[in-house]
Design a protein around this nucleic acid. Structure first.
Lengths: 285, 285
DNA sequence: CTTGCTTTGTAGTAAAATTACAAAAATTAT
DNA sequence: ATAATTTTTGTAATTTTACTACAAAGCAAG
């Protein structure tokens, strides 16, 4: 069983509704009719019999049954069970934006649900290889500098602390001029860990480019499609597919999870032989 | 109306598993056999047919059916559905600890799952009233100081930034001596937002107590049962029921979610009339 | 010990889900 | 374009599962 199979097996356990939603575009006509009907009101679907659901969605009973099996469930009853579990979390409701008239309960729930949804999405999009390589790079680096501006400066500070805890020394710098200076004085073995929510902040990209000129190793934590990610040696992607209006930034929470992952990875592997020896190692990643 | 009916009426609409557990002593021989078998492993019970469960617990099939109806469910399938929902929270409890031999995929998944589990637990334990009051307090405060030490100092920095974004001015202080000084120079309208992962750090509790002596308003973000929470005016509880070994601290992510909630709450209510006028307002919370 | 009530089980019935197979649709090759 | 092949969908029969009616057993009060 390879990594992807394991992932599939797992993701199915977590939330069937998310699974269905993300599969929606890959489904054929009949399957889409079924999925749509179920997603319309997942809770209601759990109370229907296969015959009723078949009639409702305009397909035959065996089609429903096949649909269930395609989502790695034993059959219709098992599917309903998993659906009920997924529906109880309420996570799928996160599409609703925050309204001015929302009361405390409403906006609180929306924010939490949104964060959970983003974490679930994160789980599906994690690039394990990049994490593995980043961990090795951190362990082998002579000096580690953590850069961040604005909101990400607090994340950088967090990262510094986490690195200490896992036994590595790192310095966080949130002053742009300092960042430029340090990058300019690059010496072999230096590692730049650059954190940015957007990955599009002009200043931080310039710093990254300056580092790249010196052939420095740059590990970025930013959205996968960002310009910062593009100039980095290793990319720790933090995307936020479910965006809420207002001041809620789920990626902040996801950032912390990534820091946890790095810290655990570092402390697990610190004393084992590293595969990271030179710059060329990253060339084909 | 029999015993169970009375019980059900009394303990209306909670989790089916809790309901069964508390009804256990009032059940008769046959019912007890069934309840025991289901409670042994509720998750497993959801996958059994009525025939299998009947055989397993040494009773007849109609007895199972009657049992289900006594717990206000439509029948066995409906009972299993409700049971599955109730067991969901339990599903998250089985996050396995990180092992030294875990590969990147394994420890990454464990960390993410654990964080999601904690967020779900958080969602169920949120005290909306305290959030509501905290938001009002922040809006009405003349000056806001945010205190944090160690890992929480980064969270405090984050909070400062978030407050700016939602239109409030706040200062984060991560220097203990400064914190003492500021607290000592308390003046009416000052608000102290104290953040601590453990809520048990001696130094920060002393600062809080010092503030309390001056009758200052203290809003704490810490575990609900902590000593810091006990001395605070308002408590924003961040518990971490699902703890992973290693360097993973899910409460960090939960902290960010709470900051998001506060920021959204503040910006939603900033311009509407506040209920927060004086210190006495909090007395009976 | 017997009457009346409650609880439990047996057997039959109804409903629901699954399977096997055939028809239809879509895809590919000629 | 059309025949051949593959894939998809539906029909009908089968199997499994849950439910109901009723009878037997257990239990308490007179």
């Amino acid at each position: 069983m390879n990594q992807i199979d394991k992932m599939a097996a797992w993701s199915n356990e977590i939330n069937l509704i998310c699974e269905m939603r993300s599969a929606l575009s890959h489904l054929n006509k009949t399957e889409k009719k079924i999925a749509q009907k179920i997603l319309d009101d997942p809770e209601a679907a759990t109370h229907k019999s296969i015959a009723v659901l078949a009639k409702n969605s305009g397909v035959s009973e065996p089609s429903i049954n096949r649909f269930c099996k395609r989502f790695k469930t034993a059959g219709f009853p098992d599917f309903k069970l998993k659906l009920a579990k997924a529906a109880v979390s309420g996570v799928w409701e996160t599409v609703h934006p925050i309204q001015p008239e929302d009361n405390t309960y409403k906006y609180t729930t929306k924010i939490i649900n949104n964060t959970i949804a983003n974490l679930m999405a994160f789980k599906q999009s994690v690039n394990y290889q990049q994490i593995q390589l980043a961990v090795e790079a951190f362990i082998c680096a002579k000096r580690i500098f953590i850069f961040g501006l604005g909101l990400s400066s607090a994340t950088a500070k967090d990262a510094e602390y986490k690195f200490y805890q896992s036994g590595l020394f790192a310095s966080y710098i949130d002053d742009l001029k300092m960042q430029r200076m340090i990058v300019s004085n690059y010496s072999a073995g230096d590692l730049f860990f650059i954190i940015s929510q957007t990955g599009e902040t002009k200043e931080i990209i310039e710093v990254a480019k300056l580092a790249k000129l010196n052939n420095a190793t740059i590990i970025s934590m930013s959205p996968s499609a960002s310009r910062l990610a593009r100039v980095s040696t290793l990319k720790l992607q933090i995307d936020e597919p479910h965006k809420l209006n207002g001041l809620s930034f789920s990626s902040q929470a996801t950032n912390r999870v990534m820091l946890d992952i790095l810290a655990v990875g570092i402390s697990l592997q610190k004393d084992s032989p590293a595969r990271f020896y030179n710059q060329d190692y990253f060339k084909n990643c």
